[in-house]
Design a protein around this nucleic acid. Structure first.
Length: 275
DNA sequence: CGTCGCTCCTGGATGC
DNA sequence: TGCATCCAGGAGCGAC
């Protein structure tokens, strides 16, 4: 579910609520969702730690605590992280409840149970392989046209699965990949190395645009996604290809196609995005 | 190393 | 209505 714009929206909405607050305890309803916190290190690693800020890397949320402790959270497909009043009814699939000293709670909810919360010391951060191997942040200054063009060189993989590869670029998921490819008029099955300079620049620009607009619209809420306050985003109203199979292309009226590429559904206009 | 297919789950939509 | 099947926004893992 949540891709870069959604995770960034959650980060912003949560940070203003919990920054400066202190954790007082945790309730664990499903063991496997929480990693790195044994009953023995509850006090040392968690209780009494104050939240100093929240960062984002790719689709990971990093909640920084005093004492060099970090909560690393990945929401995968259906995860939610909600700041809740204590009397708010517990939603189905609430697996972890973190208690704060303002009596409010940070709740981790995840229908499909693919998400994960790690509580680690700074020196253990490197043991989270997905985080360690993340690629460039697409909205940062070091992600340049040249950086992107270079990354395509010699890659025999199709461009769509490459965009989804988090070690290539961090934070793009299925929705924004399809939207970026449509705007750049690049076919999702195009082999990365065969993308020419002009197309590469278009795709580079499109990636930044769709992600930035996604953040401005506070994320894409198709099914489960809400921010830290439980508020839905509005970017689903502006999607041009994702979820529009059979509907007319907004540019040429050709029916949008859906095709499984590398195990993921890709949505594209067969006329505007010729191979 | 690069690429691909399978897998972890629940539940909503669809088909018979 | 009941039941089976397919599908979903992600990514780690083993196989080749």
């Amino acid at each position: 579910m949540p891709e870069l714009p959604e995770v960034e929206t959650i980060r912003r909405s949560l940070e203003e609520k919990v920054k400066g607050k202190t954790f007082t305890g945790v309730e664990i309803f499903l063991d496997k969702m929480l990693k790195g916190l044994e009953p023995g290190d509850l006090d040392e690693k968690f209780k009494g730690k104050k939240i100093t800020g929240i960062d984002r890397r790719g689709k990971y949320l990093l909640i920084n605590l005093t004492g060099g402790v970090v909560m690393v959270i990945h929401l995968r497909m259906t995860g939610q992280l909600l700041y809740c009043a204590p009397d708010q009814e517990k939603a189905k699939h609430t697996h972890l409840v973190f208690h704060l000293n303002d009596m409010y709670q940070l709740r981790f909810i995840d229908q499909r149970q693919f998400g994960k919360v790690h509580i680690v010391s700074l020196k253990e951060l490197g043991s989270i392989s997905g985080l360690k191997n993340l690629g460039v942040e697409p909205l940062s200054d070091i992600f340049t046209r040249e950086h992107f063009k270079k990354g395509l060189r010699n890659r025999r993989i199709k461009i769509k699965p490459l965009l989804l590869d988090q070690t290539f670029i961090a934070g793009i998921g299925n929705i924004y990949a399809d939207e970026a490819l449509f705007r750049a008029r690049v076919n999702p099955e195009q082999v990365a190395a065969n993308i020419n300079a002009r197309e590469a620049v278009r795709l580079y620009t499109a990636i930044r645009e769709v992600l930035l607009e996604g953040v401005e619209n506070r994320g894409t809420s198709i099914k489960d996604y809400v921010d830290g306050d439980g508020t839905r985003g509005s970017n689903q109203n502006y999607l041009r290809v994702y979820g529009r199979e059979g509907e007319p292309c907004l540019k040429c009226k050709t029916a949008i196609q859906r095709k499984v590429i590398s195990g993921r559904s890709a949505h594209f206009c067969p006329k505007c995005q010729k191979l």
